[in-house]
Amino acid sequence: MSNEPGGPTAAAPDQSEALAPRVDDHPNTGRAAPAPGATALALLAAGWLAAMLWSTREAISSATAGVTAVSLSAFALPGVISAALVAGAAVGLAAGEPVARRTERVTLRFAAAVGAGLLVGLLAALAIDLSYAGDVTTRTIAGTTAAAAVIGGALAGARNGAVVGAVTTAALGALLFVVAFSLARDPLFNLFGAGDTQQSLINAASWVSRTESLLAGLIAGGLAFGYLSWARRRAVSDGGEAALRWPAYLVAGAGPGLLLLLTEVIIRIGGRSLIDLAAALSEADAVAQTSLGTSRVDNAIWVLFVGALTAVISFGRTLGSPADDPQQ
């Protein structure tokens, strides 16, 4: 009788079994969502870098004088650096994801991502040295491109692969849009009232630039939201639990703008000698380099804020109303 359930001397349940959490209660809880399509993204980003390197080489090779080659190299440098930064991040993500699936050690993932970015940088620098003219301009482009790829790989070593994938996808989409938008610049100049006066040209150029930045931000934010939604569905379908809250969407939407700002920092540090050489050619070149630098920073800020707002608002529209919550 004393050992009956509820009796004063009934055997107490094993406390270790009662307190130990079951492994299958919360599968994958706390683990960051994986990055789907990382390999395809790496191939696209690497292809974009190769295309930018080829177009830059063609532009420099078509120059009829060394002075023109220096100017063209300075104009092409931002496109090459941004492509290298995105390619390093994408390839680093593709290299780090398999490591993340096999182990929880963040150091191994980071090392794999940095190593992949370093490989991209070395291959890009080698291609530049072999195909471009061997001068100070070539060395500047090669060194800065390699550094950008390594930095991109280091960024890919972040723990949350889904956010890195979203930022890389959105940044690549924004870069592709900017190139496609060049076809619409001349019609937009006329639409915004470009005339024969200098002031009308300046005003029209300002509106064209703002339109480009606004649309690029919207595209970046939409792509970031779409990628994270895809990552969340994939994680759930695999039996896991994707811990993606609104800060992840905020960072992913703002990420492309942050990468553009980082590109500008890399240019002004690693490519300073080339930019100064181009600016020293003439007063007009100096004004052009200053104006382009300011325009790139303004564009990055627009993409940052518009992309962040677009991603967060898109995520907010997927949330249910508090009145629909049965616990309220």
Rank of each mutant, 00 (worst) to 15 (best):
A95H: 02
L126S: 07
A154G: 14
L155F: 12
L77W: 03
V120K: 03
A112T: 00
Y132R: 03
V106L: 14
R102Q: 13
L118V: 14
A125Q: 07
L123S: 05
G152D: 06
S82F: 09
I141N: 05
A94M: 11
L77S: 04
P78H: 06
D135R: 04
A89N: 06
A124Y: 05
A112H: 08
A84G: 14
G134Q: 14
A94N: 05
V136F: 14
R139T: 08
A147W: 02
A154H: 09
A74H: 10
E104C: 07
V120S: 10
V99E: 07
V91K: 04
G115D: 06
V80M: 10
A113E: 15
V120G: 08
A94Q: 01
A149N: 01
A154M: 15
A113Y: 07
G121I: 12
V70Y: 01
T144D: 02
G96F: 00
L123E: 04
V150K: 05
R102K: 13
L72T: 15
L122D: 00
L126T: 11
A87C: 05
G92T: 07
L77A: 05
G117Q: 09
G121M: 09
A69V: 06
F110N: 13
G66Y: 07
V91I: 14
V106M: 14
A149W: 04
T103D: 08
R159S: 15
A83F: 03
L77R: 03
A149H: 04
P78T: 10
A63I: 13
L122Y: 09
S71L: 13
A125E: 02
T68K: 08
L155T: 06
A148Y: 02
A166L: 07
R105T: 11
L93I: 11
G134K: 14
S131W: 15
A113S: 15
A59F: 12
V167C: 14
V114K: 08
V86P: 03
L130S: 12
G134M: 13
A113L: 08
G115Q: 01
T137K: 04
V86Q: 01
I81N: 05
I151W: 03
A100Y: 02
G153D: 07
L72P: 00
G161N: 10
V91T: 10
A63G: 12
L72Q: 10
Y132A: 05
A149C: 05
A156V: 08
A142P: 11
G115I: 00
R101T: 10
A116K: 03
G143L: 04
L93A: 11
G143H: 00
G161Q: 15
T140Q: 10
F110T: 10
V70A: 13
V150E: 00
A125G: 04
V164P: 06
A156Q: 05
G143E: 06
V164R: 02
A63E: 13
L118C: 06
